[in-house]
Simulated scan of single mutants.
Amino acid sequence: MRKADRHLMIRQIVTEQTVRTQEELLQLLEKQGVTATQATISRDIRDMKIVKIPDETGQTKFVLFQGQHVSDNEKAEEQRLVQMIEEVVTKIDRVQFMTLIHTIPDNAPLLAAAIDDVSMPEKVCSLAGFDTVAVISRTEEDAEAFFNFIETHAVL
C-alpha cells in the first residue's frame, strides 16, 4: 500500500474512532487489510502531525493536530509548536544550559519533533523520552531565552 493511501486510512481512523495507542492503530489498520510495522506507524504519526491529548475521561487519545494553516512554512511550524506547547506541556525546568520540558504521557517525541522543525538559535538539539524533552543550548543565556519562550506559551 502506498504511503498516501495509508495516511488517508489513518486520518479516517483517528477522526472517526478513539485510538489510544500505536498498537491499537495497527490493529485497526490490519482489520482494513493494511499490514505495517510499528516503526512505519510511528513515522506516519509524526509525518501526519498526530498528537495525543486527554479526552473527557482523562485518558489520552490520538487526534490530528489542528494547527492553523499559514502560507509561510516557518510561521506554520512555529504556530504548530506553540499550539503543542499549550496542549501538552505540564512543567518546565532549566538546569544551566538545558531546558527540561515535561509533557502529558507519550507526547515528548512529538513535541521534540515540533521543536526540531522550528529554526531557533537558542537550541542545539532535543532529546525525548516518554514524557520529558531535554533541549540543550550552547549557553545558559540561550537556555534562559528558550525556557522563556516555552514558559510564555505553556498553560501551566
Rank of each mutant, 00 (worst) to 15 (best):
T37P: 03
Q38C: 01
Q38Y: 04
Q38R: 05
Q38M: 10
A39G: 00
A39E: 04
A39D: 03
I41V: 15
I41M: 05
S42N: 06
D44S: 03
R46D: 11
R46F: 02
R46L: 14
D47S: 05
D47R: 09
M48V: 13
K49W: 10
K49I: 03
K49D: 12
K52C: 02
K52N: 05
I53K: 07
I53N: 06
P54A: 13
D55N: 15
D55E: 13
E56I: 11
T57Y: 10
T57R: 11
T57W: 01
G58C: 13
G58W: 05
G58M: 11
Q59W: 03
T60L: 11
F62H: 15
F62G: 04
F62W: 10
V63L: 12
V63T: 15
L64P: 12
L64A: 14
F65Q: 13
Q66R: 10
Q68A: 12
Q68G: 13
H69R: 08
S71Y: 12
S71R: 09
S71I: 14
N73M: 09
N73R: 04
N73W: 07
E74V: 10
K75C: 07
A76W: 04
E77T: 01
E78T: 07
E78I: 07
R80Q: 11
R80Y: 15
R80I: 12
L81V: 11
V82P: 01
M84A: 09
E86M: 03
E86G: 10
E87W: 09
V88R: 00
V88A: 07
V89D: 01
V89M: 01
T90Q: 07
T90D: 04
K91N: 09
I92W: 02
I92A: 05
D93K: 08
V95L: 02
F97A: 11
M98S: 05
M98E: 01
M98Q: 00
T99A: 09
T99C: 09
T99E: 04
T99Q: 02
I101T: 03
H102F: 13
T103W: 04
I104R: 00
P105R: 09
D106Q: 13
N107S: 15
A108W: 01
P109A: 01
L110N: 09
L110M: 15
A112R: 11
A112E: 14
A113T: 09
A114V: 10
I115T: 12
I115Q: 04
D117R: 13
V118L: 02
V118Y: 02
S119I: 01
M120D: 07
P121T: 14
P121D: 15
P121M: 09
E122S: 13
E122C: 06
E122K: 03
V124I: 15
V124T: 14
C125I: 12
C125E: 15
C125M: 13
C125S: 13
C125N: 15
S126L: 00
L127D: 07
L127M: 10
A128I: 04
G129Y: 00
F130L: 02
F130Y: 12
